[in-house]
Amino acid sequence: MPVIKTTTSVAIPEEARVELKTAFGQAISAIPGKSEGWLMCVFTDETPIYFAGDDSQPSALIEVGVFARSEVPADAWTALVEAITPAVAEVLGIDPARIYVSCSSTPNFGWNGTTF
C-alpha cells in the first residue's frame, strides 16, 4: 500500500504527471514487497513553498508512505530517493537541492473499509 504525494511550487502538466507516476511506479520496487500494482500517486501543484526562507525558485516536497509490518531497510529508502529525486528534477526542472523526500512506514493501513 504505497502512496507517493508530490507537492510542487510549479505547475505539473498532465504529461508530466504521467511521466512521474511511471517513474514512481518503477522506483517503488526498491522497497521490499512493493510494486506499482498498489501504488497511489497524488499530485498537488502551484503551491507556495518556501525553502530556506525563499520561494523564488521551484521547490518540491515528495512524501512516501508505505504499509510495512517490519522495518524498511535504510538502503531501500536510499535507492527510492535516488530514483525519485532525478525524475522530479528532470521532468519538472527543479534543482535537486530544492527537493525534499520524506519516507515513512506504518503497520496501520486501511483500504476498502478495513485495516490490514
Rank of each mutant, 00 (worst) to 15 (best):
R17G: 12
R17W: 05
R17N: 11
V18W: 09
V18R: 14
E19H: 11
T22S: 15
F24R: 06
F24D: 05
F24G: 04
F24E: 03
F24Y: 15
G25V: 08
Q26Y: 01
A27V: 03
A27F: 01
I28F: 07
I28C: 07
I28P: 03
I28V: 14
I28S: 06
S29H: 13
S29G: 13
A30R: 02
I31P: 06
I31W: 00
I31K: 03
K34S: 11
K34V: 09
S35D: 12
G37P: 06
G37F: 03
W38G: 03
M40Y: 02
M40W: 04
C41A: 12
C41V: 13
V42Y: 04
F43R: 01
F43A: 03
F43C: 08
F43M: 10
T44F: 09
D45M: 04
E46V: 11
E46K: 10
E46H: 08
E46G: 08
E46L: 05
T47F: 01
P48H: 08
Y50C: 10
Y50S: 15
A52P: 04
A52H: 10
G53Q: 07
D54T: 03
Q57C: 00
Q57M: 11
Q57N: 06
P58F: 01
S59V: 01
A60W: 11
A60C: 14
L61H: 10
L61M: 14
I62C: 10
I62E: 02
E63H: 12
V64T: 14
G65H: 05
G65D: 07
V66C: 09
F67Q: 02
F67W: 13
A68E: 06
A68I: 10
S70R: 04
S70A: 05
E71F: 09
V72N: 07
P73M: 09
P73T: 07
P73L: 07
P73N: 04
A74M: 12
A74D: 15
W77A: 12
W77T: 07
T78V: 11
T78F: 06
A79F: 06
A79T: 09
L80F: 12
L80S: 09
L80M: 13
V81L: 03
A83G: 07
T85G: 04
T85P: 03
T85M: 09
P86W: 06
A87N: 02
A87V: 08
A87E: 05
V88I: 13
A89C: 12
A89Q: 07
E90R: 15
V91D: 04
V91F: 00
L92T: 01
L92V: 04
G93T: 11
G93M: 07
I94S: 01
D95M: 04
D95Y: 01
P96C: 04
A97S: 15
R98Y: 08
S102A: 14
S102W: 12
C103V: 13
S104L: 13
S104P: 01
S105T: 01
S105L: 05
S105K: 00
S105D: 14
T106L: 00
P107D: 12
F109C: 10
F109H: 10
W111V: 15
W111D: 12
N112S: 12
N112I: 07
G113F: 04
T114M: 08
